[in-house]
Design a protein around this nucleic acid. Structure first.
Lengths: 205, 205
DNA sequence: TAAATAAAAGAATGATTGTTCTATAAATTG
DNA sequence: CAATTTATAGAACAATCATTCTTTTATTTA
């Protein structure tokens, strides 16, 4: 079973005519912009600047390329987002950073509004059990990181951290969805601030 | 310009071989289950039990059928959801009803997890400006209803109702997304309860 | 320099896409 | 009953889909 991806550099044979990181980034952006099914292999090859055969030999097809794009998105976009949780300051401050970061991620580029996972993978999850499992594990991973951060807080919480973590993640995902409909950074930043204020007040939850 | 839909009953000519409301309901369920692009006209005709020509003459094509499905979904699913806001009891009670209703809507049928608007239309909105405008107006409509309910509350709120309404709607949408990944009613009901508790406490926000 | 290796380029694949067309069937109207 | 109207059934359409193939080109190794 071949390992697909762009990690191992090839030594022998004709060298590749494309930049590995540029290619996966371009694929990620196309999926993000138009969705999984709507992004054709033709379009993908064009934006990735590689022939079809190379896409298949390097990534194993459209489905696995999409999973690679999800992974690239998580590493480059969600890791920084989760890092905003710190802990660097108070829970309220860290949550403010977190929600604000989410808004910026979802609104900073009008050609890719919203979130690749919450707006695109969530649709694809309907028809494909592999994608549904991927969606579930990506969601669980973020919630776990939030729960860890919550447990660091000194506040005694009536709500279990695991439950509160799902709620906080849901707020962030809801903001992503609103960005998909065209809401701007300016539209959503007050909402993010309100969320941080609600959930950040000591013993509030 | 012809008006598409199934509202006007045809008098002359051969009678239709399908039930109007069943047909649009079946289309709604297929879009909901697999997504807009993944739902083919072939599949739609089968589940709607009508020939292709009829689908085109009655609905004007796939895109307009999808918009009709969105409208049917809004009327049959979102109207009851918004009705949970009341006002019937305290804000806390009404919000508890609202979030719980959202969870049930998103989890009650495993073949159609999540929300047609938040999980399917939000993906389609990426490639189609008409769908993006539709998404925006559907989102705005719910937020408006929430804002109206908030203004009925006696509590003095530091956060403007319009902003808080977007936040509350975002929570509901985030719950829909989590259901899309396979989360069950039991998984999400505690989260819905926590949300109601947070946002329902007097002057909390 | 010759053999081996791997990508590039693009044709070819068969299946499926959304849409439209033709011919037939079933109802109402005059 | 004849004319009109509308739906049905299914063929036909060109376009596009994801995938695989062949041939050529560029590089490394021996």
């Amino acid at each position: 079973m071949p390992e697909f991806g762009l990690t191992e550099p090839r030594i022998r044979g004709r060298p590749r005519g494309f930049e590995a990181v540029d290619a996966i980034q371009a694929a990620t952006r196309l999926f993000w912009a138009v969705g999984y099914v709507a992004a054709s292999v033709d379009q993908l090859c064009k934006t990735m600047q590689m022939p079809r055969a190379t896409l298949y030999s390097a990534f194993g097809g459209k489905e696995r390329l999409f999973l690679a794009a999800i992974d690239h998105y998580a590493k480059t976009r969600l890791v920084p987002l989760a890092a905003a949780l710190g802990p660097k300051g108070t829970l309220a401050q860290d949550l403010a950073d977190f929600f604000d970061h989410a808004v910026v991620l979802a609104t900073q580029d009008a050609t890719t509004p919203g979130c690749l996972i919450s707006c695109v993978l969530s649709d694809a999850a309907g028809a494909n059990p592999i994608f549904r499992a991927e969606l579930d594990s990506r969601y669980a991973a973020l919630e776990h990181q939030i729960a860890v951060r919550l447990r660091m807080s000194q506040d005694a919480m009536p709500t279990p951290p695991e439950v509160l973590a799902v709620l906080l993640a849901s707020v962030a995902r809801g903001l992503m969805l609103r960005a998909r409909s065209g809401a701007t950074t300016a539209n959503l930043q007050p909402v993010a601030a309100a969320a941080a204020q609600v959930f950040g007040q000591p013993s509030g939850v």
